[in-house]
């Protein structure tokens, strides 16, 4: 399959995948950059790692690769495990940890049809 095919088959949703990709890269850079600072200050490594996961997801989305979904799923599952380990069932404390990452997960999952067409 050629790039030409991809563009033609996904012109309806390809831009959305790319937009999400760039959002992930941007968020990943902010979280990763501040997360690196936090690591240097002796704090949690989660944000640095989550930042890498987001940037990778964003790059792969831009490439139209289904691997983006798997990378983000891994990032999200890691987030889930970390969040549970940190605060357990304190739901107010889970708000900043899980709400936004889960919204991104939903957005990434919505990319699956477009990414599948790309794979065909």
């Amino acid at each position: 399959m050629t790039t030409h095919d991809y563009d033609r088959s996904t012109h309806g949703s390809g831009w959305a995948v790319k937009l999400l990709g760039w959002i992930c890269i941007l968020l990943g850079l902010v979280i990763g950059g501040l997360g690196l600072w936090l690591i240097i200050l002796g704090g949690s490594w989660y944000y640095g790692l989550a930042g890498i996961g987001l940037v990778a997801t964003g790059v792969l989305l831009n490439q139209g690769s289904m691997a983006a979904v798997w990378v983000y799923l891994l990032t999200w599952l890691g987030t889930l495990g970390w969040a549970w380990w940190e605060v357990g069932a304190e739901w107010w404390a889970q708000l900043p940890r899980l709400l936004a990452p889960t919204l991104i997960l939903i957005a990434v999952l919505l990319c699956i049809p477009a990414l599948s067409r790309r794979r065909r």
């Binding site: 902010v30 989550a50 404390a93 900043p96």
Partner: peptide, 9 residues
């Protein structure tokens, strides 16, 4: 705390 991971960070 915060509303998102960024303000929490």
């Amino acid at each position: 705390w915060g509303f998102t991971p960024i303000d929490q960070l």
